Simulated scan of single mutants.
Amino acid sequence: MDYLVIPAYEPDHNLLRLIRKVKNKHHFHVIVINDGSSAKCDHIFKEAEHYATVLHHKTNQGKGQALKTAFTFIEALKVYGTVVTADADGQHKVWDIFRVAAKAAENPNQLVLGARAFTGKVPLRSRFGNSLTRTLFKLQTGVAVSDTQTGLRAFTTNMIPFMMQVEGQRYEYEMNMLLEASKEYPILEVPIKTVYINDNEGSHFRPVRDGLMIYKNIFKFALTSLSSFVVDYIVYALALLFLAAVPISLRILLANGIARVTSSIFNYSTNKKLVFKNQDSILKTGTGYFSLALGLFILDTLLIRLFYAVFGLNLLLVKIIVGMLLFALSWLVQKKFIFKERTHTAS
């Protein structure tokens, strides 16, 4: 069975034209979600009931929740098949919907995206937004996706439990879906043609906000790193104070060592639980993390000693400079190797 899911908020007759064409040419079980539309749209949903199952939200709950409502409905039917999501505004060609569905049926346990080419006359907002987010998405996940905002997606019904666990009720849900799927499933793309209606003025995509969403883990990592640095810095400063009578090289080594052990334990715990949400054993991740911590400690100590000897800078100031330099290295190693996320390449 093929299911076509169409969230609809204040739809016009483009919705009816779409589902009529689909039903005339395919055996899709079409599911339309009225996401709290006003009474002026009642006649459209009433007509849609001739071609589709129409589910209703009394109030507007957002596109993400509308999709989840449909997924819950499909899951209850307990009939294996493919699920296709499409927009209600008529931007997706019927033939492209069929092609995406076929690709998903041929590739179970994979997320299929209907990817627009962004050639020809493309609204500037759409071109800029997609260029920004696909670049950030690649940097964050390591997965190349050419169209991060497409609403035309497909997957097999056994993936519904995963889709239900993805966070978000509104338009952020679709970006969260991509971010989470990049860790668990291969992502495939099918080239599609998209019609921009009224210069795509109905688009709800927000380039800056969605771009920040992609980098939310880096922000969390920065916050835990800053907290860890504060711990490290305070312990380091106190150790320097209490070890004032010790020769400078040994003094730096001992102060930095005590500070690094304390902050590393704090940083490991917060990164594992809050940033990367890693489920691997403490033995597995701990070995890698504390090997990294040892390497960073050695590098940190050497750089502090070098900066102090060459530039004669204050030891407290040098600590801050070196910490900033090692931040990016720590993020990269932890993300790619220690708390490694499963990633699959789009194709």
Rank of each mutant, 00 (worst) to 15 (best):
G81V: 10
S126V: 12
A117H: 09
N217K: 14
E341A: 14
G257K: 08
Q91G: 15
E172N: 14
A293Q: 06
L111P: 15
V310C: 03
F73N: 08
M159T: 09
Y51Q: 01
Y9C: 00
L325E: 06
L77Y: 01
E184N: 14
A8G: 06
T157D: 07
E189F: 05
S228M: 05
F307Q: 06
G64P: 10
G323E: 01
T194N: 03
A104H: 03
I248R: 01
G288F: 06
K25E: 15
R99V: 11
R20N: 11
D280A: 15
E341H: 08
V22N: 09
G286V: 07
N271H: 02
N278W: 06
G129P: 12
T135H: 14
S131G: 10
A101V: 02
F221H: 07
V112Y: 11
L332V: 05
T156P: 12
A328V: 08
L132S: 08
E180L: 11
P191E: 00
N130F: 05
S263C: 07
P11M: 01
D42L: 07
N176L: 06
T156N: 12
S269E: 11
E75F: 10
M175N: 13
E341G: 11
T194H: 08
Q65K: 06
N200V: 05
T85L: 05
L18D: 09
H204L: 13
A244N: 02
V54G: 03
K277M: 15
S249F: 11
V275E: 04
I192G: 07
I160W: 04
N109E: 09
L317P: 13
Y9I: 06
L179T: 01
Y215W: 14
H43K: 10
M1N: 08
L124F: 15
V318M: 08
T345S: 14
M175L: 15
E180R: 14
L111Y: 11
P207Q: 00
S182F: 10
L317S: 15
R153D: 13
A346K: 00
F162I: 00
E47S: 09
T85G: 11
M159F: 12
T133H: 04
G257V: 02
A144T: 12
V310A: 11
Q165C: 10
S347T: 13
G323N: 14
G202A: 05
I320S: 02
L306Q: 01
T59S: 09
E106K: 06
G142Q: 10
F229G: 06
